[in-house]
Design a protein around this nucleic acid. Structure first.
Length: 270
DNA sequence: CCACGCTCCTGCGCGC
DNA sequence: TGCGCGCAGGAGCGTG
């Protein structure tokens, strides 16, 4: 599933190939994504130059001359540049066409989205209330310490709340908490300053490592048919229930938190 | 404001 | 081997 590093690599790859190009339209084979793809998408894009592609959280922002195409890959989506004339396979729902090339959205589970925003800003309701960027300058231990004060929600759910911090999905939440040595059920507001410092750093490191892993396989990611696209990171705890902790050897435990599977080591995390 | 559970959807893995 | 069931997950949204 695309987490923030995959989205960033997608953004970078698409921008390398398509920024500055002029769209000739869009082909919508299946409009039923999370929200309906606008019926007039092709007309809106036709003849417009794609100025640049930005990212906010896991949202991709295609900045065109008269507005922004907001994209989200949901949990099964990918966007890749293909020859516009190549036949579309299963679940390849939308093409953003730029002459002979197209950015093709494949999204089997259709949790993704493509929406039009008539502006060059972040005033769209989906963007306006997003939290801080975890790889930005503001995000550090002190910020996290202040943000968590008074919050009783389990720290894992807190860091996964995109209105607090964007881009920390279920996998990286467990991984970051392991790296920080903090148990996932700890009430967020009870973390010490030192723990917040460790956690903020762990989140940055986890995302940065994934980004680095993705950078080295960038070519594959952009051009492959998908299977090799997602980063095969070595997880410390995620999906390792019952297996030996890579640090201490104890059996990795699992629990449900907010209807999400959660993995942790009882010895390494306190 | 806060906490929490439901929801969308399809592919996969498991048990029989 | 084949079938059917349950689970997985990002994040908006409704409810208490």
């Amino acid at each position: 599933m695309p987490e923030l590093p995959e989205v960033e690599i997608t953004r970078y790859g698409l921008a390398q190939e398509l920024a500055g190009s002029t769209a000739s339209g869009a082909v919508v084979r299946e409009a039923r994504l999370r929200w309906p793809v606008p019926a007039d998408l092709s007309a809106r894009l036709q003849g417009q130059r794609l100025k640049r592609i930005e990212r906010r959280g896991k949202y991709l922002l295609f900045r065109f001359e008269t507005g922004t195409l907001i994209g989200h890959l949901g949990m099964s989506g990918s966007l890749r540049v293909v020859p516009a004339a190549s036949p579309a396979g299963p679940h390849e729902h939308v093409d953003l066409v730029f002459g002979a090339r197209a950015a093709r959205l494949r999204d089997p589970r259709r949790f993704g989205a493509l929406l039009w925003h008539a502006g060059a800003d972040e005033s769209h309701p989906l963007l306006a209330d997003l939290g801080i960027e975890p790889l930005g300058d503001q995000f550090d231990g002190e910020w996290l310490f202040r943000a968590t004060r008074g919050r009783r929600t389990p720290v894992k759910l807190f860091v996964m709340d995109s209105h607090v911090v964007v881009g920390v999905g279920n996998i990286y939440a467990s991984e970051s908490l392991f790296r920080a040595g903090i148990r996932p059920r700890r009430p967020a507001g009870r973390l010490t300053r030192a723990e917040c410092t460790r956690l903020a750093q762990a989140i940055r490191d986890t995302l940065q490592d994934a980004l680095a892993a993705g950078g080295s396989s960038l070519r594959d990611f952009i051009h492959s048919d998908g299977a090799s696209g997602y980063f095969q990171q070595q997880h410390y705890v995620y999906d390792r229930a019952g297996q030996a902790c890579r640090v201490c050897g104890q059996s990795i435990r699992t629990l449900r938190l907010g209807q999400r599977s959660t993995f942790w080591c009882a010895k390494c995390q306190r």
